[in-house]
């Protein structure tokens, strides 16, 4: 059994989330320009909220809430994107196996 390098990659991403709460709270490039040039008010709030601003709702400690939000995000990304890639790969393999596929 070969070492699963992608498990290490996933764990690196999970560890990276631990520095996210230390992120600069200053506005980023676009937001800064929007404030300076007076169009920040044009922005609308989202019509709903799930884990708005990377803070998991209902947790008082914002640090924990941010880390939890990040860990959920990292895990979902890993599963959904690798899963989609697997499906794309497998479908292609089946097409190749059955000779010429449509299109």
């Amino acid at each position: 059994m070969k070492f699963r390098w992608w498990i290490a990659g996933y764990l690196v991403a999970m560890a990276l989330v631990l520095i996210a709460p230390l992120a600069s709270p200053d506005p980023d490039g676009l937001e800064r320009v929007a404030e300076d040039k007076g169009f920040i008010e044009e922005g609308d709030d989202a019509p709903y909220s799930i884990i708005a601003d990377y803070v998991f709702p209902g947790i008082e400690n914002e640090t924990l809430a941010t880390i939890l939000a990040g860990w959920i995000g990292v895990t979902v990304m890993m599963v959904v994107v690798a899963g989609s890639a697997y499906l794309i790969h497998r479908r292609n393999g089946r097409e190749a196996a059955t000779g010429q596929a449509s299109g």
Binding site: A13, M78, A82
Partner: peptide
């Protein structure tokens, strides 16, 4: 799996704003 790892890593890295100038990240 590489696609999954890159998506996970980039998602995590995008959460981290670094300062670039006074009052801007």
């Amino acid at each position: 799996p590489a696609l999954g790892v890159f998506a996970a890593f980039i998602f995590a890295a995008q959460m981290f704003n670094f300062p670039v100038a006074a009052g801007t990240s």
